[in-house]
Design a protein around this nucleic acid. Structure first.
Lengths: 145, 145
DNA sequence: GCAATATGGTCATGGTGCCTGGCTTTCAGG
DNA sequence: CCTGAAAGCCAGGCACCATGACCATATTGC
């Protein structure tokens, strides 16, 4: 809620957090897409939650904090991109398991690599100590509430 | 390091940034609404950019990085809530100045106070040094790219 | 066993947020 | 003047996500 035209140091802390997150978040998607795995930002909500052995739609939705319908659409798209498959759950015939394909696993791996690369970059900019300190401070903020 | 109860420290740094921002961002809106100024999260995009003397719709849109149409809708809502008024721009009869009302200025002030409160809370949690260190690290991240 | 109820998933519908395209009014330059 | 550009508005549309209704299957209580 402040004018955010000038340098970052003039922003309030919350705005700085937002900028940093936005900046780095876009780089994740760019990085993954750059390695040849087209996807939308929202798809990472699936990739972040999916289990290599498959997971149920409702479980994915719960973990990603959205409705099963919304997750269903994401899975539709990922199915069209051949990143996941819907398979019947042998233990419950109502359910379907969302299972990543080989291509999907490769995309997830690419995503992890991009994140590792970005974290390395953060360490380069802040130094090993700086990065560790940042993580420690953020962890304290998050475990506070 | 338990596998079944993942705490914030198990997240990658980018995810931690995102969580912290999301957490605090919601608290801003909650705080402002709690002081009796109903608004939606998107409205802060206007409040953050508006000038007490008024600003043009297209300027607001440019600064908030959206199309004039989208900004126009936000301004419609804020006009209904009586936070802003549309006045003719004396220097250009095509343009209209979006001017905050007294109520709008009070809402902006409330927003600033909420942010100050949250920053104070951050200082309580991290300590004066911790908060300053966090800001310094974030500023370095932001000025890097 | 068998109704009652809960759960997994889908479809239809609606709301929100934002976009593009087209329009009028006004401004500025030749 | 006249033409091109800019300010703002309206219509239409797409993306995203939610609610509600529905069907198939599981589970529970009697």
């Amino acid at each position: 809620m402040q004018a955010d035209a000038p340098g970052p140091q003039d922003l309030n802390t919350i705005a700085m957090l937002g900028r940093a997150y936005s900046l780095l978040g876009f780089r994740i998607v760019d990085g993954v897409v750059g390695t040849g795995f087209p996807q939308k930002p929202k798809h990472s909500a699936v990739f972040a939650q999916i289990d290599p052995d498959g997971a149920r739609l409702t479980d994915l939705a719960r973990r990603a904090n959205m409705t099963p319908q919304a997750m269903g659409e994401l899975v539709d798209e990922l199915e069209n991109l051949e990143y996941v498959e819907r398979k019947p759950d042998p233990s419950d015939r109502r359910a379907k398991l969302i299972v990543p394909t080989a291509k999907g696993l490769a995309a997830i791996e690419a995503g992890k690599q991009v994140i590792v690369g970005l974290e390395t970059r953060i360490t380069e900019v802040l130094g090993e100590d700086g990065h560790m300190t940042l993580r420690r401070l953020l962890a304290r903020l998050l475990s506070d509430d």
